[in-house]
């Protein structure tokens, strides 16, 4: 009895559990604001201004030009205000977004991301009619959503 007991003990003791992990980040780490452009002004619509629409921030290294009605925008990682400039051939509008940042440890593999909570926004009205927040929380779920009406 005692021998069997010890044998079982040794077999169990020799088993060492370990975690299987590929050490790769397998989830999205992008935290972006979906900006949906909605054109109500018929003059702008007829001018196909979306085709010439570009979006940039003064602190960005580049600009965005997709000829699209949906843009995914990165908010500032080091400031609580992000400025976006919407420019086309004949007009320019600026949108300032005030937000809070939360540094989040997503996982060991993926590291850290910034989550954002939008506080408020204001804008110039050269061509922008109004803005509407669908979701003011930005996480890796691509849930932040802003509608901009022209």
């Amino acid at each position: 009895m005692k021998r069997i007991f010890r044998l079982v003990l040794f077999i169990l003791f020799s088993f060492i559990a370990y975690n299987c992990s590929d050490n790769k980040c397998n989830e999205s780490v992008d935290v972006e604001l979906k900006a949906e452009i909605i054109v109500k002004d018929t003059i702008l619509e007829n001018a196909n201004f979306i085709d010439s629409l570009s979006i940039y921030s003064p602190l960005w290294l580049d600009s965005v030009h997709y000829s699209s009605i949906n843009y995914l925008l990165d908010l500032s990682p080091f400031s609580n205000t992000t400025t976006f400039i919407f420019t086309s051939q004949l007009w320019k509008d600026t949108v300032w977004i005030l937000h809070e940042r939360q540094l989040v440890y997503l996982s060991q593999e993926c590291g850290f991301v910034n989550y954002y909570t939008i506080d408020s926004a204001w804008y110039t009205s050269n061509n922008i009619d109004s803005i509407e927040w669908v979701n003011k929380k930005l996480t890796t779920q691509n849930d932040g959503h802003l509608k901009i009406y022209f």
Binding site: S57, L59, W60, L61, D62, D74, S76, P77, F78, L103, F112, N114
Partner: peptide, 12 residues
């Protein structure tokens, strides 16, 4: 390290 094509590289 945050690596962004728009904002560049920055550290927190």
């Amino acid at each position: 390290l945050f690596n962004s094509s728009h904002w560049g590289n920055y550290y927190l």
